[in-house]
Amino acid sequence: MDRESAQRIVLGDVEIIRVVEWQGPFAPARDLVPAAGAALWKDNEDWLAPDHWDPASGAAVMALQTWVLRSAGRTVLVDTGVGDGRERPRSPHFHHRRGDFLGDLERAGIRPGDVDVVVNTHLHADHVGWNTHAADGEWVPTFPNAQYLLAAADDFHFGPRNAYGGGRNEEDRLVYEDSVAPVHRAGQMLLWAGAHRIDENLLLEPAPGHTPGSAVLRLASGGDRAVFVGDLLHSPVQILDPACGSCFCLDAEGAAVSRRRVLERAADARELVVPAHFGGAGAAEVRRQGSGFALAGWAAGGTA
């Protein structure tokens, strides 16, 4: 995607703007979605390549992106990417990364002070990084006027009360301390459980498995529907076989249950499915096919 433009879609009364922080080959596809056999990728090469899979290298192609929603007079960000200058020693794509994400937002017409709500679909490094930025040697909220929304289950699991994810991954502590704790200290964090309505168009609902507090954001405006699914889907092959989890799922079985439930509703209610990491058009329409699902089409979106 050209840095001088942003993809825009209008659903009902809600404008959706896609801002891409990074896009390219990310990891071996068979490592990213271990249960997806070689045949699943090869048999669908005609539409997986080049936006979602590079057959030559075998790498999954992914995007790091933020979805900006203009809804009910407010500006809502869905996930905030990787951030700048972070210590992520186990994540080569994220470690000490430098980029122009805030410039990309501004070119799309969004300044930090304009943002009213920040939704973190879950607490992983590539979804909370721009929650904060460095100022005078400290991490402070990037969006000074925003309320940040995070599921209480993820805050508990990755925060100090559960010793930063049980201490299994040192980066969990780093992510919490530089991207979440400063928002708490600033009094801008709202932890939610059960469900949380943002406005008449937007509703947060739990979809646990990938992390304990993984969430989806449902959009319903006029006759249009969409569901922002975070990391329930890392690759379109998981639409074809929702039993296939990613290597990053903390509870693979729970994630599969949530993924199938969300895809069933999306197919039946004609919700546009908007994952966090799809390249190409970035969002997809799905339909039922036998006991599973198939791709019905890609989102259409202009640039501005």
Rank of each mutant, 00 (worst) to 15 (best):
L69N: 06
D155R: 15
A134W: 14
F94C: 04
A243P: 00
D2F: 04
G301Y: 01
S179F: 05
V118Q: 06
D172A: 09
P55C: 11
V61C: 08
G73Y: 02
A49L: 02
E177W: 05
V216P: 01
P89M: 07
A36T: 07
S71W: 04
D100M: 11
N145L: 09
A125H: 08
D114F: 04
E106Q: 14
T132N: 08
D155S: 15
E200H: 12
I239A: 05
R18H: 08
G129S: 13
R70N: 10
L232G: 01
D241V: 15
P242L: 14
G165Y: 07
R90A: 13
G282F: 05
E106Y: 05
F228I: 08
V237L: 00
Q289M: 09
D84K: 05
L149P: 03
A153F: 06
G282A: 11
H95K: 10
G103E: 14
G166I: 12
D155C: 14
D2K: 13
R88A: 15
W22M: 07
W130S: 14
W67N: 07
S258Y: 00
C247W: 01
A195G: 12
G222M: 03
H196M: 08
G254F: 09
V175I: 15
A283I: 06
W67C: 00
G302Q: 14
A38I: 02
R288V: 12
A146P: 10
R270D: 13
H196K: 11
V140A: 05
I9W: 11
N131L: 06
L232A: 04
L219D: 02
F228W: 11
T75D: 12
V183G: 05
V274D: 05
G230W: 06
G58L: 06
A267W: 04
I17F: 04
L233I: 12
L149H: 05
P34A: 13
S221C: 10
L233Q: 03
L40I: 09
G12V: 03
N44T: 08
L203E: 13
A269G: 11
A195Q: 14
D31P: 02
V175P: 02
T211I: 02
V237Y: 01
A36G: 06
Q238V: 04
A304G: 15
L190P: 01
V118K: 07
N145Y: 00
A283P: 07
T132W: 03
V33D: 02
A256Q: 09
C244E: 06
A108R: 12
H93Q: 04
R218G: 07
V262I: 09
N169K: 13
G282V: 09
L232Q: 00
F158G: 05
G159F: 04
M1L: 07
C244H: 09
V10E: 13
P275S: 14
L150E: 01
S246F: 03
R111A: 11
W130Y: 15
G282I: 10
A63D: 10
A125C: 07
L102K: 04
E138V: 13
D231I: 12
A6W: 01
N131R: 06
P28L: 03
A6Q: 03
D268T: 15
H122C: 13
V180T: 10
R97F: 04
G12R: 09
A266K: 07
E106L: 07
D2A: 15
G245I: 03
A220Y: 00
T142Q: 10
L102T: 15
A296E: 12
W67Q: 09
L204T: 06
A63S: 12
D231R: 05
L64A: 13
G109H: 01
